[in-house]
């Protein structure tokens, strides 16, 4: 297990607002996340959890406030966006692989196209990633030939291939059959233990309690409560948090 001792703030969000038409998805959200920290984001549907992490790699543009990722502010400068995207890996609810590319090509794509890595090196890196997530033997298959759990592990390997400093997970197991959830959580657990900075939106409470350094609880676009797993599960302060926990535990 890698020591998580860094106090360096790697993600700084201050007073972030995000609107979808007339609906305000984020209302003045502020959070600092330190290097190596594993933060689990919880909250009811439509509370702004996914929007928050999508703003961190600018899949959604925030309208007000400030988001700084590893010293780079997210703004209209496309060079900043490029740098941030190379430092932030993301795994979605759906497996999000290119169906016409083999597993190996999916994983090697970004290193080749973005980092301009020679094909051989990119494929070696991709194989190392596939080995890390436990499916090197699937390299020459196409995504549709794999189970959901295997596809999600490929998606994790694909994100890791860019050697990101931060990994974002947006409900990575919610589209999986129950028997496939464990294999994905095992990979994420290993990643958390390796010292990777992770922000995870999930409803897998057992897993979250085990790996999280901190919880952020969202409701109606705001962070209502945050704290350690012990605080969150044993001593929640806010009525909204208590209600949520009573519904899901």
């Amino acid at each position: 297990m890698v020591e998580k001792s860094s106090d360096k703030i790697i993600i700084h969000a201050a007073n972030v607002d995000k609107w979808f038409g007339n609906f305000q998805a984020l209302k003045g959200v502020s959070a600092d996340i330190t290097e190596g920290e594993v933060v689990v984001v919880l909250g009811p549907s439509g509370s702004g959890k996914s929007t928050f992490i999508r703003c961190i790699n600018q899949l959604e543009e925030h309208e007000a406030g400030e988001i700084v990722v590893d010293g780079i502010e997210i703004n209209d400068d496309s060079r900043n966006l490029q740098k941030i995207r190379s430092e932030v890996g993301m795994v979605f609810q759906q497996f999000n692989l290119f169906p016409h590319l083999t597993v190996l090509d999916n994983v090697a794509l970004a290193p080749r196209k973005v980092k301009k890595m020679p094909k051989k090196d990119a494929e070696e890196l991709a194989m190392a990633g596939l080995t890390r997530v436990g499916i090197p033997e699937q390299a020459i298959k196409f995504p549709t030939q794999l189970s959901g759990g295997q596809q999600q592990r490929v998606a994790i390997a694909r994100a890791l291939a860019m050697q990101p400093k931060i990994m974002l997970f947006d409900e990575p197991t919610s589209a999986l059959d129950p028997e496939m959830i464990k294999e994905v959580l095992d990979v994420m657990r290993e990643l958390a233990e390796s010292g990777m900075t992770m922000i995870i939106v999930t409803h897998e409470m057992g897993f979250a309690r085990e790996v999280a350094d901190r919880f952020l609880f969202f409701a109606e676009g705001q962070i209502v409560e945050q704290g350690t797993p012990d605080h969150f599960f044993n001593n929640p302060q806010e009525d909204r948090t208590k209600l949520f926990l009573s519904q899901i535990l």
């Binding site: 995207r85 190379s86 290119f98 794509l109 970004a110």
Partner: peptide
């Protein structure tokens, strides 16, 4: 063109040069 047509959001997340 193929990658961005098949999956535009994923192309963006991967930081592929799409402009």
């Amino acid at each position: 063109l193929v990658l961005t047509t098949v999956h535009g959001e994923l192309s963006s997340v991967l930081g592929l040069p799409t402009s």
